[in-house]
Simulated assay, not measured.
Amino acid sequence: MTKATTPEPKFELLQADDYSQYLLREPREIAFVLRQLAARRSMVTAHFGERNEFLLTTVIEVAADNKSLLVDLGREETIIANAMACGKLLCVTQIDKVKVQFPLERLERVTHEGFPALRAPLPDVLLRLQRREYYRLSAPAADTLSCQIPLANDRRITARVIDISGGGIAVLAPPDDTLLQPDMSFRNCQLVLPEFGAITATVHVRSLFRMTQRNGQDMLRAGCQFQDLSAPMAHAIQRYILRIEQDRASRNV
């Protein structure tokens, strides 16, 4: 690929503590994301060197054993030589407006179908950032997710979850339920994720509006933001979302 004048910007370092809950470390999960990039031929900006040089590339394929991947190198020999001399790339791209960043090291120049390519071991870590532009997953009908919201006097609401992201959930409540109001916060809410256990978090109601379902019944839709979500629980949500994505992708093959 040719060098461009406006590269995809790098964001926070992979080691940043603030983003630890967005890191994938399981090889199978990392390989799944990289295969998504390959299938979509997503443009990847690969940064390298102290002068912040970059080249534009794409992921060609991920090895069947999930141990290595191939990326395109384009034809600009000067840039290729500089990248190989550096020996490390920091790759940045997006999938469905979710930012993805991963390092590549131990670079090996190869030829793929007659064109320059680069082989590298599968990265040990991949950042799938959902902080500012959260990818929202529509809750699978089979899972029937619900959230237990504690109220005063030992009362609680059981609200059906209709979508979930790393940043929060959207729930449905009866239309006459006046206990959910914008800017209210509820502590110790519980959301059970199949295979991943219970998530306990504070939820803050950001929006509330009435909607009519297909059966004609009116419901309230509350958009809720997670507050003070622990890293293990945030990671469990990420893993749940990825598992659902993998299941849906396998059914579409």
Results as ranks from 00 to 15, higher is better:
residue 103 P to I: 05
residue 40 R to H: 14
residue 75 R to N: 11
residue 191 L to P: 06
residue 25 R to G: 10
residue 89 L to P: 03
residue 41 R to E: 09
residue 99 K to D: 04
residue 236 A to G: 02
residue 133 E to V: 13
residue 232 P to K: 08
residue 51 R to F: 04
residue 240 Y to D: 05
residue 159 A to L: 02
residue 185 S to E: 15
residue 126 L to P: 05
residue 85 A to S: 07
residue 108 E to V: 11
residue 69 L to Q: 03
residue 104 L to G: 04
residue 19 Y to Q: 03
residue 89 L to H: 01
residue 144 T to W: 02
residue 16 A to D: 14
residue 128 R to Q: 12
residue 1 M to H: 12
residue 67 K to L: 14
residue 205 V to K: 00
residue 113 E to W: 00
residue 24 L to D: 05
residue 212 T to L: 10
residue 136 R to E: 09
residue 71 V to A: 01
residue 195 E to L: 07
residue 55 L to M: 15
residue 250 S to L: 15
residue 89 L to G: 01
residue 224 C to I: 10
residue 211 M to Y: 02
residue 126 L to R: 11
residue 3 K to D: 05
residue 186 F to I: 09
residue 221 R to T: 01
residue 64 A to V: 13
residue 59 V to C: 03
residue 66 N to L: 04
residue 4 A to Q: 08
residue 56 L to W: 05
residue 15 Q to H: 10
residue 216 G to P: 09
residue 240 Y to A: 03
residue 13 L to K: 11
residue 157 I to K: 07
residue 175 P to A: 12
residue 14 L to Y: 04
residue 211 M to T: 15
residue 4 A to H: 06
residue 37 L to V: 05
residue 3 K to H: 07
residue 247 D to E: 15
residue 133 E to G: 02
residue 70 L to C: 07
residue 210 R to G: 09
residue 27 P to H: 08
residue 95 I to N: 03
residue 31 A to I: 04
residue 202 T to E: 15
residue 36 Q to M: 15
residue 121 P to W: 04
residue 134 Y to D: 06
residue 218 D to Y: 08
residue 37 L to Y: 09
residue 224 C to H: 04
residue 168 G to K: 02
residue 252 N to F: 06
residue 46 A to N: 01
residue 148 Q to A: 10
residue 227 Q to V: 04
residue 145 L to F: 01
residue 2 T to F: 09
residue 147 C to K: 04
residue 182 P to T: 07
residue 2 T to I: 08
residue 66 N to C: 11
residue 61 E to Y: 01
residue 245 E to T: 03
residue 248 R to M: 14
residue 17 D to H: 06
residue 214 R to C: 00
residue 214 R to I: 02
residue 98 V to F: 00
residue 140 P to M: 06
residue 115 F to E: 15
residue 166 G to V: 08
residue 198 A to P: 06
residue 75 R to F: 08
residue 96 D to G: 05
residue 126 L to M: 10
